[in-house]
Design a protein around this nucleic acid. Structure first.
Length: 649
RNA sequence: CGGGGCGUAGCUCAGCUUGGCUAGAGCGUUGCGUUCGGGACGCAAAGGUCGCAGGUUCAAAUCCUGUCGCCCCGACCA
């Protein structure tokens, strides 16, 4: 089979020169190329042979570049992937991967798979349709229905299925059937498959879509130490994979969200268009998603004019923090600042057992972090399972809970909520001002631990912001934006316990698996790579994931010497396993240059005016033009490609 | 789901306010010719149920009602 492939290539080379027909289209070329596609490439793929020798003529590649940006595309990756013809929108959040993108994605998946396999992980394929019963066994059906993340479908028999947003249930069920003994542990399974999430709002092209491709891995362990080892091995494998992918990615502490579990890190690619905010400390190396970040905040200056005892004060029409501060400063408290206020935000929290009203108190100058509140509530409500949904109270619910108009709530007499939490920075006996649960009134000189009319649980509830102290070094934290391209979780026994997935330990007793899970958004990696590697002319693919490594551009169609030179370089490259394109299109050179810059092929060989003197031009996508002798051109490109695709580890 | 915007040729958009000729332009596509180193030029051509449905009117891309879709800002996540 291999031999046949080679022979066909040579045929292409020979038939290539002869021109037939007035438009300069070459019949022999056409036939030979389609023969290759039919006979060689699929066969190679079937045998797992890398598609390295697939010859490619630009005239047969269905290149469809756009001169203008599609109106819907806002960020670079979306804009450029669309313009260069990598992507076609099929529906909102649904994309067709064009031939060029398929090649990029294949390379991403291949690198990820190699790094996973290098850790000893075993590749599998799981179904995308998952039975409701499995998800009920883990207890996640309700949560995913509540958040409406999972799209459900029904078959003709009336069975309900979910479209896989992730696969903990399926793989845990699998492990429980095939892993019986601690001697088989640890073991890690992974797959690279389509995931579906019913996104509230798909956006940014490939960045946030309903259907995407993700590598998801799941590890099973007999001990926490073993989980720790694999968790660290996975983090290291991610580092290697992202380096090979040409991405600058870094790990940050993260919230584990709906997946659950104890420890969790996200892998971020720094980008201004990223949807996540990261707090970090250059001093200590601390980095965390703002959903999760902790830190120290400056102590509020003393409020000197505070009353000794709680004092109900008429504050007509001032419901917001700014208004209250302004009013009180004008009425006898000129030194009062927002940090002297206690802000009470009211929520309704839903669990499997029902709904609860919740009051959350934070210092007036700080923002409440709803992720932290959700987690704090979940800890408080251990018996009821996790908080499935947290939403702010509507105005009429606020009136019911406080007997006052919105804007005057406080943890004082008249507050009717099931739970009251307060940020731990409010601990201590400093007097504050807070709503009086009475329209147009606040209470001044309020000391939370002395005067609260409801039981208060303290927890970390505020959103950390730049300038707050790093929890490790105490130095000011900084902020940046990132694209989440990967995530690692320690799941513990959350799923194995719920689903009774157990193995026999050395003690001859049954134990639930201790689990970890790990994901890399392969299709999002592609978008992130473009965000990180582009310029005004188009995409600049890292060589490791470029759809092709080199393009050979003859600038004079019809000039026999130029075409011969281009053919020679092209076939030399192919013969050495370089993924090369020959731009045989009968268009002006400028069109070719623009196209390849936009598409982002890393290396270019131009055969044109220098050919008469035996010279061609070499140019890296971001480099400058260099002249080289025709005879050494292919070798030079080969050296560049090889050098780039094996980065120092 | 709340707030904002948009649906007219493959793409980017004019036209709509103030209803009225055969619905336009640029890019792209096809043919012929001239060109040929950074998105050439000339000539010719194809391509539209103006998102869909209903209404008002002698007459609707244009006005009204409904509906569907898409995009942007906020709450979910790889």
């Amino acid at each position: 089979m291999d031999g046949a492939g080679h022979r066909i290539e040579i045929d292409v080379g020979r038939g290539h020169r002869r021109r037939v027909g007035p438009a300069g289209r070459c019949q022999a070329r056409l036939l030979a190329t389609s023969a290759i596609h039919r006979d060689c490439a699929p066969a190679c793929r079937r045998q797992g042979v890398p598609p390295r020798r697939t010859p490619m003529l630009a005239s047969r590649m269905n290149i469809s570049t756009l001169r203008e940006d599609p109106s819907e595309a806002e960020i670079a990756s979306h804009r450029l992937l669309m313009r260069a013809g990598f992507l076609h929108k099929s529906g909102s959040g649904l994309y067709l991967y064009a031939p060029l993108l398929k090649r990029v994605l294949d390379k991403v998946e291949r690198i990820v798979a190699e790094e996973m396999a290098a850790t000893g992980a075993l590749e599998i394929v799981m179904p995308i349709l998952q039975e409701q019963a499995l998800w009920e066994a883990s207890g996640r059906w309700a949560a995913y229905q509540a958040s409406r993340t999972m799209l459900t479908v029904r078959d003709r028999g009336g069975m309900t299925f979910g479209l896989a947003p992730t696969a903990e249930e399926v793989v845990t069920d699998y492990a429980s059937h095939v892993v019986k003994s601690h001697k088989q542990l640890p073991v890690t399974f992974f797959q690279q498959h389509t995931k579906f999430r019913d996104e509230i709002r798909p956006r940014f092209g490939l960045m946030r879509v309903k259907e995407f491709i993700m590598m998801d891995a799941y590890s099973f362990h007999a001990s926490d130490e073993s989980l720790d080892q694999t968790y660290q091995a996975m983090r290291a494998a991610y580092d290697r994979a992202f380096r090979r992918l040409g991405l600058e990615a870094f790990a940050v502490e993260a919230d584990s969200g709906a997946i659950g579990g104890s420890g969790s890190h996200e892998f971020m690619v720094a980008a201004d268009v990223g949807e996540d905010t990261i707090m970090f400390c250059p001093e200590s190396g601390y980095a965390a998603n703002v959903e999760r970040a902790t830190g120290t905040i400056p102590v509020a200056p003393a409020w000197e004019s505070a009353p000794e005892a709680p004092l109900i004060t008429h504050t007509p029409g001032v419901g917001t923090i700014e208004q209250v501060v302004g009013f009180l400063r004008a009425h006898g408290h000129p030194s009062l600042v927002a940090s002297h206020l206690l802000k009470t935000v009211l929520f309704v929290a839903k669990t499997a057992a029902g709904s609860h009203s919740v009051a959350a108190c934070v210092r007036g100058d700080r923002e409440l972090n709803e992720v932290k509140l959700t987690n704090a509530l979940t800890r408080l409500l251990t018996a009821e399972g996790p908080v499935l949904q947290l939403r702010p109270m509507q105005a009429d619910e606020v009136r019911d809970a406080t007997s006052a108009e919105p804007g005057f709530a406080g943890p004082v007499k008249g507050l009717k909520v099931a739970f009251c939490l307060a940020d731990r920075t409010l601990q201590g006996r400093a007097p504050l001002a807070t709503g009086a649960n009475l329209t147009d009134h606040h209470i001044l000189g309020f000391v939370l631990e002395r005067d609260a009319a409801v039981p208060v649980a303290f927890d970390d509830l505020i959103t950390i912001r730049p300038g707050d102290g790093c929890p490790k070094s105490g130095k000011p934290l900084q902020e940046k934006r990132g694209i989440e391209v990967g995530h690692v979780f320690k799941l513990g026994t959350k799923y194995s316990q719920a689903m009774k997935a157990e193995f026999t330990g050395a003690d001859q007793k049954l134990h639930p698996f201790i689990m970890g899970c790990y994901g890399i958004g392969s299709s999002r990696v592609v978008a992130a790579a473009v965000e990180q590697h582009h310029d005004a002319d188009g995409i600049c693919w890292p060589t490791s994931i470029a759809p092709y490594q080199c393009v050979v551009v003859p600038t004079k169609t019809g000039d026999a010497a130029v075409e011969a030179a281009a053919n020679q370089v092209y076939h030399e490259l192919l013969a050495h396993g370089i993924e090369a394109i020959l731009d045989d299109r009968d268009v002006k050179p400028g069109v070719k240059f623009k196209d390849w810059d936009l598409i982002g092929i890393p290396h270019r060989v131009v055969c044109g005016r220098g050919v008469a003197e035996g010279l061609v031009e070499l140019k890296a996508r971001r480099g400058v033009v260099e002249n080289a002798p025709l005879a050494g051109a292919a070798a030079a490109i080969i050296a560049r490609v090889r050098g780039a695709s094996t980065p120092a580890a």
